[in-house]
Every structure is written in structure tokens, then in C-alpha cells.
Amino acid sequence: MDQFLTTLTSILNSAISPQTAALAIAAIGLNIHFGYTGLLNFGQAGFMLIGAYAFAISIIGGLPIVLAVLIALVAATIFALILGIPTLKLRGDYLAIVTLSAAEIVRMVGRSSLLTNVTGGSNGITGNEYRGPFTDLSFFGDGHIDFGPWSYDATGSNGWWFIATAWLVVALLCLFVWAIMRSPWGRVLRGIREDEDAVRALGKNVYSYKMQALILGGVIGAIAGIVYILPASLQADSMGRSMTYFIFTALLLGGAATVFGPVLGAIVFFAIRLFVQGVAGQFVPSNIMNGQQTEQFAWIVIGITLMLVVIFRPQGILGNKKELSFDVK
């Protein structure tokens, strides 16, 4: 029973952790790409990494935090333009391959030993080097706050200040997505997802709308990158291809083209993993499955879950089968 409680506690902790919020934010961005516009962006982790590097390096360079965030957003915009200009006029597969490649290039360049002075190479940048200005903004005080089942420091690097701001960002972005997707702008995007030629025939500049969507989702990805590294450290390899796949899994789990799908998906994603890990850890003797293996077993289950969701419930938990986001005949 102790084991069960431990698992439950860790699920509850992960449900509100800034890392979960970061995954949710990245999935909200990807939702604009994939869920609403039908763009196959396989480089969302690249956007996160761009945002994270731009933010961290700006702060270390002595810039104020607002400017650092702004630079991160501009960097993501430029990245989106570089990816979008050659590919958005072509068939969707090309965007997929180019974004996948570009995200890897960002990661490889970021971890390269040539840039150790700037990016910290494969060691990355430790949180203490850029966390300061953000922690200083806290008005939560220095104590320790208990809230329901959760107990954290008020301001420390895994404390309430980080949790509250991360989820505030999630809430604001949900509101934003809800507002723009009910508008005629969102309608054009959904039209493009269904059939871009039809939308073009109605006199809409499809290329421009796809670019706007790519930039917007990418910028949100950059915000996710910042939220992701604030309580932790910046390591290029933590935002690689697997991260993109996890974002996709979270999005599809929750429901693409829905406002709250990405958020619910991110929470469920971590919950499934911890639950499986906890159950495997408790019921399977450790000579059959050791600690490391329960973790890997949980990831195997995540992979299979992704397959099953896409096959049997492509609309995810929250989606409506009738207005499914991707091609189901």
C-alpha cells in the first residue's frame, strides 16, 4: 500500500509540475500547427530549444528578463520563417522532414563542443546561471506552503512560484487559443486543414495563413522551452526528437483541435507513465524487472498507447469524432 501511495503522490506532483505545464504549452503550440491547420511539424522540440537557448543566453548576457523572453520569441519567429518559406508551398511531407531535420540541427549545433562558451556544449547550462532574475520577481516570500496534497517551497526552484507562473501561462494560452479559433481567422485555418485548394479558390492567401500558424505555434513552443528550463537546467539532448514525439502523444491523447486537449493530454501522459512504473515496481519482482526496467517498460506502454489512441480513438479524450482533426475516411 505504501508503494501505491508513493505512486499516487508522484502522479499528483507531476500533474502540477512546471515540466507538465511546459509539455502542455508545447502541445498547445503544436495543436495550432497540427490540430487546427494540419501542418506536420515534427520539430516542436527544436522551437523549444531555440526559445530556451535564446532566453538563457540573453539572461546570462545581462539583459532584463522581459527582453530575454522577447528575444526568445523573435528567435522562434525567425526559425519558423526559415522552415516555412521553402516548404509551406509544397506537400505536407516536406514540412515534416524539414522540421524534423532542422530541430536535430539545432540540437547538434547547441551541443557542439565548438560553442561550449555560449551554449555549454553537451553539458548545457545549469539553471542557476539564468534562473536568478525570474526568482527575484517572486512575491511569494521565502516560506514553505502546503496546499491540499502538495507541499513545496514558496519560491525555490521547484516551488510554488514556478508552478503558479507556469500554469498561469497555460491558462492564458488556452484562453488565447479559444479566442482565435472561434474567429474567422481560426475558420480559415480549419478550412486549410480540410482542403487548401478550396480555401485558395475562395481568395484566401493560404501560404500566409500557414506561415502565421507556423510562427504562432512555434513561438508558443519557444515559451514552452523557457518554462521547461526555468526550474531545471538547459540540456540540448533533453529537447530532442523524443520530446517532439511526446508532445505529439500528449496532444493526440488529449484531443487535437480542442482547447483543453493538449493540457489534459500532458497531465495524462505523465500520469500513465508514473502509474505503469509504480504498478510494475510494486507487483513485478525486481529480479524480473529492475528499477531501470520499470521506467523503460512505462515508455513502452506509452508507445503502444500512442498507437492504440491513433487507431481507435483518433479524436483523443476530448475530441468530437465528427470534427476530427486528421484524415480519417
Binding site: 514525439y245 505529439f248 502523444t249 515508455w299 508507445g303 500512442l306 498507437m307 491513433v310 487507431i311 486528421f326
Partner: peptide, 17 residues
Amino acid sequence: GLGTTQLMIVTIGLSIA
């Protein structure tokens, strides 16, 4: 009748597993 995008994501799940 799964579309190619759906199938592609299924292969991603398989790849992770």
C-alpha cells in the same frame, strides 16, 4: 481506412515502443 497521417503517427508509437 486509416489515413497516411494517422498511420505515420502509429509508426511513431511503434518506434517509441
